[in-house]
């Protein structure tokens, strides 16, 4: 029983991290169809923003406030990654819409550039971010089962991001414009929607969410300039498995990969577990090439 609960929690925890790193990509790749290889670097930017916030708090704030730096660092990393995303879209991505291969190469180059930038600014070695003390420890639910607060916090953060994204995309005026443009750009333009603005905003928001993911990753361990490269494959896997263009699909994709990964790793070992997960994904995509949730409507033309 203890083992079962612990494994279930681990599965959900891994899923939540996967989901957080994939959510931004679900927008930039899922909605906008931009193969953004620099997504990992936007995560890295978010992580370093958290590091910077921490250092600023260290330097300029009374030490009793230090524990609350993390609360500030979440919006801060969103904002900084958002600005980087906006800059990237305006200067580069907007010239590459509808050219997947070009955008793949270009964004990969941007990724390398950003990594080197981080290396030049912060140095090549990993830096550590001190977690706030209120996230240390865990919740004891059975005598042997302790759920770490950090993991619980990430699960909560993902839930909050999901809810915010849901309301933005499906309930707000901006979200409605965004969906209209992504489905039928020309027609949306003919109805007076400013497609340039919508593109820039959408890409920037996707980038901002990657920043939040980076912020959360600082809780899991030290961070370095190549932090993003570890996560980019997972992020794409989640979005592709979930089905492009739907939030629900991304959630299912993350849950599927997270839970199965934990299960397989428990039964076998870490590397074999990963192989089995990949095999399952390949098999699944053979069976349903468009992922868990495919967009379907009656097509009339």
């Amino acid at each position: 029983m203890d083992v079962f609960i612990l494994q279930l929690f681990n599965g959900i925890s891994v899923s939540s991290i996967l989901l957080l790193i994939a959510l931004g990509l679900a927008i930039t790749f899922g909605l906008m169809k931009v193969i953004n290889m620099a997504h990992g670097e936007l995560i890295m930017i978010g992580a370093y923003s958290t590091y910077l916030t921490q250092n600023l708090f260290h330097a300029y704030m009374p030490s009793s406030w230090f524990n609350w730096y993390f609360v500030i660092s979440i919006p801060a990393s969103f904002l900084i990654a958002f600005l980087f995303g906006l800059l990237l879209e305006v200067s580069l991505i907007r010239h590459l819409y509808g050219r997947p291969l070009d955008s793949l190469l270009a964004t990969w180059g941007v990724g390398l550039l950003l990594q080197q930038l981080a290396r030049s600014v912060f140095g090549a070695p990993n830096v550590a971010v001190t977690s706030p003390s209120w996230l240390n420890g865990g919740m004891r639910i059975l005598s042997d089962v302790v759920l770490p607060y950090k993991r619980l916090f990430i699960v909560g953060l993902v839930a909050a991001c999901l809810i915010a994204m849901y309301f933005y995309i499906y309930r707000s005026l901006e979200g409605r414009r965004m969906r209209a443009v992504m489905q039928n750009r020309d027609m949306a333009a003919c109805l007076g929607v400013s497609t340039r603005r919508v593109d820039a905003m959408t890409f920037a928001i996707g980038s901002g969410i990657a920043g939040i993911a980076g912020c959360a990753l600082t809780l899991m361990g030290p961070i370095g300039p190549s932090l993003g490269t570890y996560y980019i494959v997972d992020a794409f896997m989640v979005v592709v498995l979930g089905g492009v263009g739907k939030l629900v699909g991304t959630v299912l994709g993350a849950l599927g990969i997270g839970v199965f990964n934990t299960m397989f790793e428990y039964w076998t070992n870490a590397s074999l577990g990963k192989v089995l997960v990949f095999l399952c994904i390949v098999a699944f995509l053979q069976w349903r090439p468009s992922g868990f949730v495919a967009m379907r409507t009656r097509s009339l033309d």
């Binding site: 039928n184 949306a188 009339l300």
Partner: peptide, 20 residues
């Protein structure tokens, strides 16, 4: 060919029409 936004509801389709 009408070019309706297939994934938007009927109501949202009309609201997009209000943009102009």
């Amino acid at each position: 060919g009408r070019e309706i936004f297939g994934q938007l509801t009927v109501y949202e389709n009309i609201l997009i029409g209000l943009e102009a």
